[in-house]
Simulated scan of single mutants.
Amino acid sequence: MARLLFKLAQVPDDEAQEIRNLLDEHQIAYYETDAGLFRVGLDAIWLADGSREEEARKLLGDYQSERAARQQQNYAQLVEAGQAPNLWQHFCAQPLRFIGLVIAIIFVAGLTLLPFVMPALQA
């Protein structure tokens, strides 16, 4: 019976390819599904045979630990070199999106605090 191994939603292409290579290297049978035209389905990697699920999950866990350490090291190097993106660079890259997110945050915070502020305003 097929078993879900890894969801591919918002996963970088290089990470997805490294996972495919890892499974191929250990000769673990898998297949992929995509969400389809209307994005109703699930982008994922599935194990064709659930009998090797434990082995595949251990390999995936080890890979993710190694990748996390590698990415943290890369980020530390960017920060050290002064190349890590800061808030101003995010704003400059996509100003409309940034402003929209700030407005959305203020709106949600206002709605959340409204029940607490209304009694104080009525008094």
Rank of each mutant, 00 (worst) to 15 (best):
M1H: 10
L4V: 07
F6K: 00
L8V: 09
L8S: 06
A9T: 09
A9V: 08
D13L: 12
D14P: 08
E15H: 08
Q17W: 08
I19A: 12
I19E: 05
I19G: 00
R20K: 02
L22K: 03
L23I: 04
L23H: 00
D24K: 07
Q27T: 03
Q27I: 07
Y30W: 15
Y31E: 11
T33L: 13
T33V: 07
D34K: 11
A35R: 07
L37S: 11
F38V: 08
R39Q: 13
V40S: 07
V40H: 11
I45T: 08
I45K: 02
W46S: 03
W46D: 11
W46N: 15
L47N: 00
A48S: 12
S51L: 05
R52D: 14
R52P: 01
E53N: 14
E54W: 09
E54V: 03
E55N: 15
L59S: 04
L60D: 02
G61K: 11
D62K: 13
Y63S: 05
Y63G: 11
Y63T: 05
Q64E: 12
E66Q: 13
R67C: 01
A68P: 07
Q72D: 10
Q72L: 10
N74I: 13
Y75G: 07
Y75C: 13
A76V: 04
A76H: 11
A76I: 09
A76M: 06
Q77G: 04
Q77E: 01
V79P: 10
A81R: 01
A81H: 00
A81T: 00
G82C: 02
Q83E: 03
P85L: 15
P85F: 10
W88H: 12
Q89L: 13
H90N: 14
F91L: 12
C92N: 15
A93R: 14
P95N: 12
I99D: 02
G100H: 06
G100F: 03
G100Y: 02
V102N: 00
I103D: 09
I106G: 04
A109Y: 01
A109I: 10
L111H: 08
L113E: 04
P115R: 14
V117W: 11
V117K: 09
M118G: 11
M118N: 13
P119K: 11
